[in-house]
Design a protein around this nucleic acid. Structure first.
Length: 217
DNA sequence: ACCCAGGTGGCCC
DNA sequence: GGGCCACATGGG
């Protein structure tokens, strides 16, 4: 994937806090639309916990409209920021000092932050060695025959173990690139309706004739 | 006119 | 534990 697509250098953002905002806004949404929403926020105010918390809900909704699901995402942003200010005084550094698996549980208790969003925050905002599993990860590597399970935690542990074993000295970097490259490959060659024939990994495929969401046509 | 996007929670069984 | 649904804008 690195040969096919090059280094991705995720996550594009000016600050770790902006990574978190983007992680919530990009749920089931193309990054292009998220960029518009973040650009609207930046044009309004500096993107920091206090300034976004001080926006009233209707104004926040209207600013993030391009990212879709804007009413529910405005609530999700507020849910996170309320917790973040109350618990960590709005400081990313303070939050990042918490043990990563304990912090993961805390994040998962916030309504609107599920596993992928929590793990994106841990990896890309806080540089924790947690691998992010998304639907492309499941779809691509199921089709390839690399994984047989659909369970998020199992898949996360399989990738974490494999990537650590391959290169212990660049765990965080490799987790970041692996996930970003997986998304890049998925966007181009691994949609729900399979168009895998030009996929750079197609020669590795072990599975044939599987017909379901994670199937091969 | 479809199909899909860097998911999540609620509800039902 | 899974299966289905709402949430919504914008691009191919």
């Amino acid at each position: 994937m690195l040969n096919a697509f090059g280094k991705q250098n995720w996550w594009p953002a000016d600050s770790p806090f902006e990574v978190i905002i983007g992680a919530i806004l990009t749920q089931q949404t193309s990054w292009k639309n998220v960029e518009k929403a973040i650009s609207n926020l930046k044009n309004k105010k500096e993107v920091n916990p206090e300034s976004i918390n001080n926006l009233d809900s209707e104004e926040l909704e209207s600013l993030i409209k391009p990212s879709g699901f804007y009413r529910i995402k405005a609530k999700r942003l507020k849910n996170f920021i309320t917790y973040f200010i109350k618990t960590y005084n709005g400081k990313v550094k303070t939050m990042s000092e918490v043990d990563s698996m304990n912090l993961r549980k805390e994040l998962l208790n916030i309504k609107g932050i599920g596993k992928e969003t929590a793990d994106s925050i841990l990896l890309y905002a806080l540089n924790k060695d947690i691998f992010v599993v998304d639907n492309y990860t499941k779809r691509i590597f199921y089709r390839l025959g690399v994984i047989e399970t659909n369970d998020y935690e199992q898949i996360r542990e399989i990738f974490e173990a494999g990537l650590k074993e391959q290169d212990k000295n660049n765990t965080i970097y490799n987790f970041k690139e692996m996930h970003a490259l997986t998304v890049e490959l998925g966007k181009t060659y691994c949609r729900k309706n399979p168009i895998c024939i030009k996929c750079p990994l197609v020669s590795m495929c072990k599975k044939k004739g599987v017909k379901n969401e994670y199937g091969w046509n």
